[in-house]
């Protein structure tokens, strides 16, 4: 995930509880997310509709995206 580039989520996989929690936070199919800076532990902060969500690296791997537009 390159920092600063808007991406469209085309799939989220992983345990159902995680998928549901991410959906509640706005990270779901067709949502636009923007990766921001890296965090301690190898994760990242991402922007989702103006919210900042810190995600572990394993969670980032379960979010499949493609460049917007």
């Amino acid at each position: 995930m390159p920092a600063g580039a808007a991406l469209v989520v085309h799939a989220v996989d992983g345990p159902p509880a995680l998928v549901r929690r991410l959906a509640e936070l706005g990270i779901r199919r067709s949502a636009v997310v923007t990766p921001m800076h890296r965090t301690a532990g190898g994760g990242r902060v991402i922007d989702v509709a103006g919210s900042r969500i810190a995600l572990a690296v394993s969670v980032l791997r379960s979010i499949h995206t493609e460049p917007q537009g």
Partner: peptide, 10 residues
């Protein structure tokens, strides 16, 4: 461990 998913408030 459940992986980190946390909302960062402003």
């Amino acid at each position: 461990a459940d992986p980190l998913v946390i909302d960062l408030p402003p």
